[in-house]
Amino acid sequence: MKTYHKFFRTGLGLFLLAALLLSGCSSNEPSVFDTSVSTSEDTNVSRVPWDYRIVEGTVGDLIGSDMTVLPDNELMPNDGNYATGDKIWSLQYMDAEMTTGANQKTDVRLSSWDTIKTFKTQEEAKKDLANLKVNVTTEVDLVGVYQTKYKDQTRDFAVVELPSGNRIKQPIDDARYKELEKKKKVSVKLEEVHDFADYDSAYAKFRGWAS
């Protein structure tokens, strides 16, 4: 009986060790955006998808299975079997590093544009872009409205909380100030910018009032 228990404990230990090794070796395809979040006592830093665009270019030199794209001579995989001189369209993305301090103020640092995919036609590129930048109308929380005065001038502002959790301030006129003064929810237009490699990850940007 002691031998059996000893064998059982040894087998269980080997099984757990193998499971740990397998989990350490497995990996999923990383997102094009580093959406990792780091926090400290005073700050919260996250990286979110910010924008996409389509850029027209020309195939330059062919280097093995890669190609350069003019005018910037960016090196890209030649997945479309392009030839030198071909016109192509590139889908480029930009992400943003957002740092929120203890005072809830968010600083945004934008990355440079980077190419993730090329297309033979502009129409094909626009189809992908339409799925990555989506316009929606929805209700969000209205944090409040307030006024500032300087000499004889008065300015009105509204603060709303977007689905991403960040709060934004928008200037408004006197009529909208009176309309929103006692509201808790407000209808707005948003642009959802989705992660190319992880569509469920998105960042919502304010694009105007819905009414």
Rank of each mutant, 00 (worst) to 15 (best):
D61Q: 07
R53K: 12
N73T: 12
V32W: 12
Y52M: 00
N78I: 05
T68N: 00
P30T: 02
S65A: 14
T58E: 07
V32N: 06
A18C: 07
D79K: 02
S26W: 12
G80H: 04
M67S: 00
E74K: 11
S65W: 11
L21V: 10
M76F: 14
L21C: 06
F33W: 02
S38K: 14
T43N: 14
I54D: 00
S38G: 14
L70V: 08
S65G: 08
G60R: 05
T58R: 01
V45T: 01
T35V: 14
S26N: 12
T39N: 10
N78P: 08
D79F: 10
M76S: 11
V37E: 01
E56M: 05
V45Q: 04
V45W: 07
G24C: 05
P77L: 04
E56K: 06
N78M: 04
G57V: 01
S36Q: 13
S27L: 13
E41G: 08
E74A: 12
L20P: 02
N81S: 14
R53W: 01
M67Q: 04
P49F: 03
L75E: 12
S36K: 13
D66Y: 14
R47W: 11
D66S: 14
G24L: 05
S26A: 13
F33M: 05
T35M: 12
V55Q: 04
T39Y: 10
G60I: 06
D51S: 08
G60M: 01
S23Y: 15
T68E: 07
Y52I: 09
V59N: 00
L62S: 10
S31R: 04
L22E: 15
S36C: 12
V48C: 08
Y82C: 06
V59F: 03
D61W: 03
V45M: 08
S38F: 10
T68H: 05
R47T: 12
C25M: 13
T35S: 10
S46L: 02
N78F: 01
D42P: 03
F33P: 02
L20N: 02
S23I: 15
V48W: 00
G80I: 04
N78R: 05
F33R: 03
L62P: 04
D79V: 08
S36R: 12
V69Q: 03
E41M: 10
S26M: 11
I63W: 13
I63R: 07
P49M: 01
V55I: 11
P77R: 06
L20V: 07
T58K: 00
R47N: 12
V32C: 08
E29S: 09
L70P: 03
